[in-house]
């Protein structure tokens, strides 16, 4: 560096324009991602009946008030029921499949089956909704909790599958060899060695399935009936008519479920190990 330049130019030179531009873009994209959620959280404390800026008379009362609205409580319970069903079905079908396919990744047919299992995520949810609506109406299941859970499983099971494949791949098969060598058959080795050792992965997959089901609304929109309507579907109709702190409070409860789920997953397997995209 030459020292005979005027100080102003020197400062300009040392000023990192790349970093500034980079950070500006980063701020904008984080804003786009997070601000809708932040604003929902903020507005839930507004004291006014209808939302308008600035949010004044800050209060917690909506959080208690909405608990007394039977419609919302009912939809919340419906969401919990479908999410539990989804979790159970997803885990039961996807875990053994992930176990079988994780060890044969190189093979042709295994690769094809793995990508077949992830096809439903590629489909627009509207299409899954329509297809299942037609099929389940035919066999008389439309509108049941089970119907919505099936729809959600089409979304959740592939993601559980991807997560569990990653978990099983990290599992050293030497332990199964040891178990078999000591006299265990395939099922005993799976139940007594594999499952306990990948327990944390399974817990994460459970939360994943559960969270996905509590948040999904397009498939549920097609498959619900008045008695099984889930909270996101009810929200979908409600927010078009009103902007109110009560709705915000309900939304914050939902965001809380997601945040808690992410926290648990992070504790158990690390947030960066959630199976998404091409990684698995």
């Amino acid at each position: 560096m030459s020292n005979n330049k005027p100080p102003a130019i020197k400062i300009l030179r040392h000023f990192d324009w790349h970093r500034l531009t980079f950070n500006f873009f980063l701020t904008v994209v984080l804003f786009i991602l997070l601000v809708p959620i932040l604003i929902v959280v903020l507005s839930s404390f507004s004291g006014k009946e209808h939302l308008s800026w600035p949010f004044t008379d800050l209060t917690f009362r909506w959080y208690f008030e909405v608990l007394n609205r039977p419609l919302w409580v009912k939809t919340f319970i419906n969401s919990l029921i479908t999410a539990s069903l989804t979790t159970v079905i997803s885990l039961l079908v996807a875990t053994p499949a992930a176990y079988a396919l994780s060890k044969h990744k190189g093979k042709g047919e295994a690769g094809f089956i793995s990508s077949f299992i992830t096809w439903p995520i590629m489909m627009p949810p509207v299409i899954i909704g329509i297809a299942l609506l037609i099929f389940l109406s035919r066999i008389g299941l439309r509108g049941s909790y089970f119907a919505i859970a099936i729809g959600h499983t089409l979304w959740a099971a592939p993601l559980v599958f991807i997560t569990m494949v990653a978990v099983f791949e990290r599992f050293n098969p030497i332990y199964i060899m040891a178990a078999k060598d000591l006299g265990a058959n395939d099922i005993q080795a799976f139940m007594k060695v594999t499952i306990p050792m990948v327990k944390s992965g399974i817990i994460s997959a459970m939360f994943l399935a559960f969270v996905i089901s509590t948040q999904e609304f397009i498939i549920a929109l097609f498959l619900h009936s008045p008695s099984t309507i889930t909270l996101p579907v009810e929200l979908y109709t409600a927010i078009r008519d009103e902007l109110s702190p009560g709705i915000s409070a309900i939304s914050v409860y939902m965001i809380g479920i997601v945040a808690a789920g992410l926290f648990v997953i992070d504790r158990v397997i690390g947030i960066e190990n959630i199976g998404f995209s091409g990684k698995g």
Partner: peptide
């Protein structure tokens, strides 16, 4: 392996961690 009366001590020992 589970029907044979042999037993292996593995290089990594493979003690069940749980």
């Amino acid at each position: 392996a589970n029907k044979r009366n042999t037993a292996t001590v593995f290089q990594e020992w493979a003690l069940f961690p749980h």
